[in-house]
């Protein structure tokens, strides 16, 4: 079973709001030194989905990421967990793209990798929240996709996916090769063992430039965008909260109940 996982390096989405700033001139987020970079959490779950299949059936996991200044201690994490190979599309020409131009580059890299049965992506990246790269890769490669998976099982030439729906889930089956986007419902991701972490030292990432994957310069990165960002801004929160007081927590609770009845909320 040959598997490919696409991951994105993002600023830690768990960072407190107070450290979040936007540069209105460039419509981009201003990185703050205290906020670390991480792998987008859904992408970590995509890695976990692939690892689970590798645990059960064996196989090879190739991880691909795209960007510039990719921190090795961030993007190498899947290697420490048991992935086999890391390919970095690391070039200024790759960045500034939208879902489509990013998917175009990733699909080109996947074609170059050649053999694959399953491709995993996170359901959406924690920064752009776009949620489209997976579907676009599948379309470019002409393979079936299943979105928002919580369980993935590989069975001879097919993959069975529990796909999250609004009120439960569906069990969907598609032939491989196929692309699966993975959601947090997959459950907890594993932690790297010390030996796994140290072993990743020996797995140096492979760097590919646009020419290496035969990408047309006009279709990658900012040049290949179909979507234009007109504006990026922070919504203003200005609700005035009335704090209900009281001697003890029990008093506060009773006062809250009285208040809610008084203003006819309950």
């Amino acid at each position: 079973m040959n598997m490919i996982v696409c991951i994105k390096q993002v600023l830690d989405p768990e960072a407190p709001l107070s450290s979040f700033k936007i540069d209105p001139a460039t419509n981009t987020m201003v990185p703050v030194t205290s906020v670390p970079f991480v792998i987008s959490p859904f992408d970590e779950q995509a890695v976990e989905a692939a690892l689970k299949i590798k645990d059960a059936k064996g196989g090879k996991i190739t991880v691909i990421s795209l960007g510039v200044n990719l921190l090795r201690d961030v993007v190498k994490k899947p290697l420490s967990l048991g992935a086999d190979e890391l390919i970095l599309l690391e070039d200024p020409a790759f960045i500034g793209g939208d879902s489509w131009s990013t998917a175009y580059a990733l699909a080109a890299a996947i074609k170059k990798v050649g053999q694959f049965d399953l491709i995993f992506c996170g359901r959406q990246a924690a920064d752009s929240d776009s949620g489209q790269v997976g579907a676009c890769i599948a379309e470019i490669l002409g393979i079936p996709q299943v979105s928002v998976a919580k369980k993935v099982e590989a069975i001879d030439g097919k993959v069975k996916v529990d796909k999250v729906t609004t009120d439960g889930y569906e069990v969907v089956e598609v032939p491989t090769p196929a692309l699966i986007t993975v959601s947090n419902e997959l459950g907890e991701v594993r932690f790297a063992t010390f030996k796994g972490t140290m072993a990743s030292k020996k797995k140096e990432p492979i760097i590919w430039k646009p020419a290496d994957i035969g990408a047309e310069p006009a279709k990658i990165g900012a040049a290949g965008r179909r979507i234009k960002t007109r504006k990026l801004f922070q919504p203003v929160r200005d609700s005035k909260c009335e704090i209900i007081g009281g001697e003890t927590d029990e008093d506060k609770a009773a006062n809250l109940a009285k208040k809610l009845v008084e203003v006819k909320l309950i």
């Binding site: 201690d73 190498k76 907890e188 990743s200």
Partner: peptide
């Protein structure tokens, strides 16, 4: 180094959980 940073970050996430 990179591996130690990975160890450290992994430990941070592990202990937070």
């Amino acid at each position: 180094n990179d591996e130690q940073k990975m160890l450290k970050q992994g430990a941070r996430e592990f202990f937070e959980k």
